[in-house]
Write a protein that binds this DNA or RNA. Structure first.
Lengths: 222, 222
DNA sequence: ACAGGTTTTTAGGTCAGCCTAAAAATTTGT
DNA sequence: ACAAATTTTTAGGCTGACCTAAAAACCTGT
């Protein structure tokens, strides 16, 4: 059965929306907002995806991926993230420049291509933003990263990923001098506005607003 | 102005068909056959392409690319051939495996991507089949390669490209042991059926039917 | 429990890109 | 030169993926 580019994008949207809250059904309006497509159009598509057994759809109740739908969505995510690694590692793109191009490349259809690309890139486990790359069987590394702003005490962490992928946010981090893998030490938490004073790699002192801190994912330093 | 994937394929078809005979207009049926799309549909599309000023179209007379149409087609060809180099040189695909994947990749839209890919590949001048890669300005290397079967006398040549790109033909050449760049010496021409006895790289003796020889492009050995 | 607001679906329309069948234009053979 | 064959276009239809407007279902607060 062939799945169109458009259908792949709906599946991908449902997949990522379903991870916002644990296992909740995804609503028509959520998909509509996420894809900037009118709700009526989304309803049309949901009916078609349900006929193809890619989703479980109950009118007025929302939608959930079927096993088939889920594995399709994960394959698209795998391709997207592998291509991002290619663009950054091999073609020297910046991490804030690759999303739009990967949105196109993720729909290229060839299992052989992806398998070889994966090998060529050294079977990477994470993309340039720190997001885990599903393996060929769709298995994802469990990442226990937590937004910086959820830490309420001083401590030392490693910056492992971002929760927000917009160009402006990524460029902001670049201008601050924060890169994946950097050491981040919380030196002070301002109780008034929950902003953070941190030190990056032991030398670079910075202030993060709570909003910025909420999009910086860290792990306990080992 | 945006050009759809489908429109790009029509422009590419017109471009390659217009090179079969010098500067002749391309007919509706030629395009129809080449793309396996019914003639009535082709007529529809030609009207749309003409409205967009991508072609010069006179009903019942045929079609010719405009400057804009030609540069669009050449860009697609450039992308196709660069991606083929990537697939063969970097991902170790065989030369008979890359066409279908490149047909998809050629429609990825990003000037920056192509410029960087070109650099990454070492600004190659030819694709894995010996076809010239247009440069960023659309300029093509003039190739003076001639089908082997047009040579009527013994002589020494270099194999520089193929006139036929089908999997079976390419696999045939691989099984014979003929690769781009190999030395090809005509040792005998059979006058009865115009088949050729040749020696490849001074050691490998082979017979070529006229049909095979007609698809092997060679240059005089320098 | 039901009025008012929100969400979702239904109904009907558009456009791109394909199709078949039939009509019109062009080319070919004698 | 003109009938027959071929090529091309026109006419009308379909499907996927979008839209707007209106109806239906669902939720919420008193």
């Amino acid at each position: 059965m062939l799945i169109s580019l458009t259908e792949e994008n709906y599946l991908k949207a449902i997949y990522s929306l379903s991870h916002l809250e644990a296992d909740a059904d995804v609503s028509t309006n959520q998909i509509s907002d996420h894809l900037s497509i009118k709700a009526a159009t989304v309803t049309d598509m949901l009916k078609r995806l349900a006929e193809k057994k890619l989703i479980h759809y109950i009118p007025y109740q929302g939608v959930k991926l079927s096993e088939k739908g889920k594995s399709t969505a994960i394959k698209v995510v795998r391709k997207h993230r592998l291509w991002e690694v290619f663009l950054v590692d091999k073609l020297q793109f910046k991490w804030d420049e690759v999303h739009e191009i990967a949105e196109q490349l993720e729909h290229i259809n060839s299992d052989e291509l992806i398998q070889r690309l994966d090998k060529f890139l050294g079977k990477p486990k994470f993309d340039p933003h720190g997001d885990p790359i599903p393996d060929a069987n769709g298995q994802l590394n469990i990442v226990k990263a937590i937004p910086l702003n959820q830490h309420k005490t001083k401590g030392s962490f490693t910056f492992v990923g971002v929760a927000e992928h917009s160009k402006t946010f990524l460029q902001h981090l670049t201008s601050i001098g924060l890169k994946i893998g950097d050491a981040v030490k919380i030196e002070e938490i301002n109780e008034f506005d929950n902003s953070f004073k941190v030190k990056i790699n032991k030398t670079n002192s910075q202030f993060f607003s709570n909003k910025v801190a909420s999009n910086i994912l860290v792990e306990e330093k080992k």
